[in-house]
Design a binder for these strands. Structure first.
Length: 585
RNA sequence: GCGCCGGUAGCUCAGCUGGAUAGAGCACCAGGCUUCGAACCUGGUGGUCGGGGGUUCGAGUCCCUCCCGGCGCGCCA
């Protein structure tokens, strides 16, 4: 609708401008839905914009434009208002035909044609597999999954990927944490490192490991702790201490057994994460192994690419990426003095890999604490000779947990956190998914656990589900009362939808495709959530004030057609957000 | 210190490229079920859009500055 109005206006504008010998080249204008019905359906600011450029009065320009406007069957009225707005009122049947458009489009109402927009690889969560997901990860999961669905609806081809950090020091720390718990089972008590993973799940992994391999990994406590540098709690350095412990584990266990230990931690944690996310309705097309980047030579190739392009230099025995050439704050180490590649080296390879797989865009959904990555990754893209605009990095702000009015501190390492699994058990998948994406990802989220747990009825997700169930109930009632629904008659008689509440609902429904567009372009699933709530609310107003199951078929059929359209729209919309649409509650 | 994200009703938050009288939910007040699902609906109270400048026909939105809060600035991942 906006587009066709824009066409009409541009046609008219060209005539007005040429008659006055003026140019429209620098002229931009907006067409917006009005909020006030007295202003018609759409308003355009073109006359005011032109007034600024041309130095004439806005209302005079508006009058000239209207005079040249071609006739259009969708338009009932065009008028000047306020400082020079041009207000458009649509023809009545243009509005009611929304019901027909919804029926014709079916579940895809508001969606763009598949593959009509650039293809996207989107990565979300990608938490290190060294413990269970906590509620902070939940937000990234809910946002990422909903966004991926939304992008698909918006015509993007979407590929969902999880980057598994199955290499690196954090995983080694998990391995030794498991090992020490394993030794404890045989009464070999070694002081647990301050930097180790203290969560209960580590004991569980250790027990499983003991069952699986027996005493194969056993060593006396004295041999393990012999001559280790002091830990933080002993007045030493926790990093140095834990690194020494890792080295000790490798030395005592040997390559094969250390691998066994390492894999037990990885398998367990990754398996737990996969199950957790699946139960949360968060799915992936691929789980991408970080380690595979090293073994396949991708890491080396990334480094070579940067070297060949002259963006690497050697200093203090290490190899650096000259990120400052591309707008980053500082240069970044890629290969350490000891020859090991950094995590950043994997990032380079992974980005190169993603874009070379043929995706037009790569979206990284990251936590707000990773914002330093934006400049860094864009610098890498440019260094690799790729367009940095192909990378988008929406940051998900922190979810701050409150329980009993107190802020809950979270730390994976200290083992004190609320897991995503616990949250799902308490508030349910649907409420949790909706709660997470109700707000802008850019906004800090106060997650009141008490409210979410004990008074979950107040969660707006129930409003949507209730509305959906209510419409389903309506059709059950229709069948019982033998007041059937004739879709064809509904189409034929849509002009009978004249109640103010029906008109308000139809207007909102007519606008829905635009809502989807805006949500897609802004990577903002919360806008979809808001649109669904408004539509549900408008439907409930209509429903409450108008008897649906009336004897008169020509009144009943269009009302039911409208209700059916809303039902389907809500069901599809909720599915995009990962929320179930029950038929009864 | 530098950088990123915020500051909108008592609370939690919406507010697409700058548009008309700044919205919703909760809370509070007053109403609505012999009738399709009252987990609903109708109406009302409630605002220096953090402060101050600026840009212009017009600023919650853009620019500058200050204040407050969160987060980040490793040869960690």
């Amino acid at each position: 609708m906006k587009n066709s109005l824009r066409h009409l206006l541009q046609h008219s504008l060209a005539i007005v401008a040429s008659e006055a010998g003026l140019s429209t080249a620098a002229l931009t204008f907006s067409i917006e839905r009005t909020r006030n019905p007295a202003h018609g359906d759409f308003a355009c600011n073109v006359a005011m914009q032109a007034a600024r450029l041309w130095g004439r009065k806005p209302r005079e320009i508006a009058a000239s434009i209207i005079a040249q406007l071609p006739a259009d069957t969708d338009l009932a009225k065009v008028e000047i208002a306020g400082p020079g707005f041009i207000n458009f009122t649509l023809a009545a049947d243009c509005l009611t035909r929304t019901v027909l458009r919804m029926q014709d489009a079916g579940a895809r109402y508001g969606f763009a044609a598949p593959a009509s927009r650039p293809s996207i690889i989107i990565e979300y969560v990608s938490a290190n597999p060294n413990g269970p997901l906590h509620v902070g990860h939940g937000r990234g999961a809910a946002y990422g999954a909903s966004l991926a669905n939304l992008l698909e609806a918006g015509g993007h081809q979407v590929y969902r990927e999880y980057y598994v950090n199955d290499a690196g020091r954090q995983m080694d720390i998990l391995a030794v944490s498991v090992w020490l718990r394993y030794l404890e089972l045989a009464n070999e008590i070694v002081r647990f490192p301050d930097n180790g993973y203290k969560g209960d799940y580590v004991h569980g992994i250790a027990r499983d490991l003991r069952l699986a391999v027996g005493a194969k990994l056993h060593h006396p406590a004295a041999a393990v702790s012999h001559d280790l540098p002091l830990d933080l709690g002993q007045g030493g350095d926790k990093e140095v201490h834990v690194d020494a412990l890792i080295a000790r584990a490798k030395a005592l266990l040997g390559e094969a057994n250390y691998r066994l230990l390492f894999e037990s931690g990885l398998k367990h944690c990754l398996g737990d994460i996969k199950d957790d996310l699946a139960e949360f309705g968060v799915r992936y097309d691929n789980w991408f192994s970080e380690r595979s980047l090293a073994t396949s030579g991708a890491v080396q190739r990334g480094i070579d690419t940067l070297k060949a392009a002259g963006h690497m230099f050697e200093k203090d025995g290490a190899w650096w990426f000259r990120a400052t050439d591309f707008g980053d704050e500082k240069d970044r180490v890629v290969v350490r003095e000891n020859g090991a590649t950094t995590y950043f080296a994997s990032d380079i390879a992974y980005l190169q890999n993603k874009l070379e797989r043929g995706f037009d865009r790569a979206i990284y959904v990251l936590g707000a604490d990773h914002h330093g990555y934006i400049a860094r990754l864009k610098a890498v893209a440019r260094g690799l000779g790729l367009d940095p605009n192909r990378i988008e990095i929406p940051l998900v702000q922190f979810a701050i947990l409150y329980e009993g009015g107190e802020r809950v501190q979270m730390s994976t390492r200290a083992g004190s956190f609320v897991t995503l699994r616990d949250l799902r058990k308490e508030v349910g998948k649907d409420a949790a998914r909706f709660f997470y994406v109700m707000r802008s990802h850019d906004q800090h989220l106060d997650f009141d656990l008490d409210l979410a747990k004990s008074r979950s009825v107040e969660n707006p997700v129930y409003y949507l589900q209730y509305t959906h169930a209510r419409i389903c109930g309506l059709f059950r009632q229709a069948a019982e009362k033998h007041l059937g629904y004739d879709p064809a008659l509904g189409r034929a008689a849509v002009a009978n939808l004249v109640e103010p509440a029906a008109v308000a609902l139809l207007q909102r429904l007519m606008n829905y495709p635009e809502d989807i567009d805006i949500a897609v372009e802004n990577r903002a699933p919360h806008l979809l959530a808001a649109a669904l709530r408004e539509i549900a609310s408008l439907f409930n107003s209509f429903y409450n004030g108008t008897q649906m199951l009336v004897e008169d078929e020509r009144a009943r059929a269009p009302r039911l057609a409208l209700a059916d359209g809303v039902r389907q729209l809500l069901a599809v919309g909720m599915e995009l957000l990962g929320v179930a649409a029950p038929e009864t509650m």
